[in-house]
């Protein structure tokens, strides 16, 4: 009952905010822009209204990894990755995209620093998305970090900004 209530309240809040945002848009651009999404995200988090179980349930998260490194095989696959969380081990099905950046080694616009560990073309990014809270069909909360644990912790922390019940 509580979950239904907060989802209803959330839907109403998002509908109002979404309509406000749309009213500023021209005929050429119908979609929710990235900047508008970011603004409304902050407003929805400030209002909140969901319970902590929305944020603590691990099934409410999807995580993905993007790897940009020279000489890796470019591929997309699912991988089970585990981490320590609150003293116990938890695992996620992570969608992994790997991209070989080695051909950029000969690009005159690229500098050597781009290929040192952590450089523009020798890096990895984890993103975790909270799937239960959406606006305009898009997830409200996506956080990025250099490790699965950090990305998930950030997403959960952001989610908890809106816990009111």
């Amino acid at each position: 009952m509580g979950r239904v209530l907060y989802l209803s309240l959330l839907s109403f809040s998002m509908m109002v905010l979404f309509q406000n945002c749309q009213s500023f848009e021209t005929a050429q651009v119908k979609e929710f822009s990235s900047q508008c999404h970011a603004k409304i995200k902050n407003k929805i988090l400030a209002v909140g209204g969901w319970s902590d179980s929305e944020c603590s349930n691990l099934n409410h998260y999807n995580c993905a990894l993007k790897v940009y490194k020279p000489y890796v095989s470019s591929a997309s696959f699912k991988d089970v990755q585990c981490m320590e969380l609150d003293g116990s081990q938890v695992c996620f099905d992570v969608d992994v995209d790997t991209h070989d950046t080695s051909s950029l080694l000969n690009n005159p616009k690229i500098i050597d620093d781009d290929f040192v560990e952590g450089g523009n073309f020798n890096r990895q990014e984890y993103r975790c998305m909270q799937t239960g809270i959406v606006q305009g069909g898009q997830p409200l909360i996506i956080e990025v970090a250099d490790s699965l644990e950090s990305a998930f912790s950030l997403a959960r922390k952001t989610c908890r900004q809106g816990v009111r019940l």
Partner: peptide, 24 residues
């Protein structure tokens, strides 16, 4: 450059960068 790259690959990546730039 290749030597630096080989050294870099010895480490596990932990970074936060990305891939679009206004053209210089």
């Amino acid at each position: 450059k290749k030597l630096m790259l080989a050294v870099a690959l010895l480490f596990i990546a932990e970074s936060i960068r990305a891939n679009v730039l206004w053209s210089s």
